[in-house]
Amino acid sequence: MKLESALVLSQEQVYQDTFLMWLSCPPVAKGGSPGRFVMVHCGDGLDPLLPRPMSFHRFRSERSERQFAILYDVRGRGTQWLSRRRASDELALFGPLGRGFAVDPQAQNLLLVAGGLGVAALVTLADDAVAAGKAVTLLQGARTAAKLFPAHLLPEEVEVVSTTDDGSTGHKGYVTELLPQYLSWADAVFACGPNPMFEAIAAAVRGSGSGLTRRSGKSVQLLMEEHMGCGTGVCYGCAVFTPKGVRLVCKDGPRFNFREIFR
């Protein structure tokens, strides 16, 4: 693996502060799958220094070339720089990295749970699941309506349920408050969001009697995020403290099975 040059195909602000960028970089797209990520340089020189981890948001095939998209919020000077790139600009990046989602072919009903920008990594999973004829429900929570991923950008087969912290759309509160209604329906759960969301999922799973236990064979997969330095498992920055010891998001994850994180 080496630093690759990716061609920006398009860049679009899809909702408040959130940008969608399509990229052409066959060596990186080749091994990409839902839940895996790339490290994207967000500057021309040595400042900002570190590449930013970005999940594969979507894949498509154009004239037999596999292309991918990233979805990101403008948060700091790196993502500000990134948001100013235009079609035909080039970006330096490397990947694909990490352990992605694993979807059991037997699982028919997939519940996706997204907190904030966590939705970025779940859309490609929804695309694949719908294409495979599975039923998909996306529970999506955001601070406010303007920060929700637009449902019209998802395959129409996906059932989208939204919550907002301020009640501007949908249920007022956290997305995890709706979990109990859906857990028994789901054959498998895939979640991506901030760490407190995972804690709430753990509480819901434990309290639900939904059969989401080791015995049921139902899987709950969490896509985690921490401050990352290298993306390759060498700097030990993105540590997660688990009952079985310290794990690294970039190398051991970012996808963890529920029981790897929670007892």
Binding site: M1, K2, L3, H41, L46, L49, L50, P51, A92, F94, G229, C230, G231, T232, V234, C235
Partner: peptide, 9 residues
């Protein structure tokens, strides 16, 4: 050192 985080190679 740190350069390896910027570019693994």
């Amino acid at each position: 050192g740190t350069a390896t985080f910027v570019n693994p190679r």
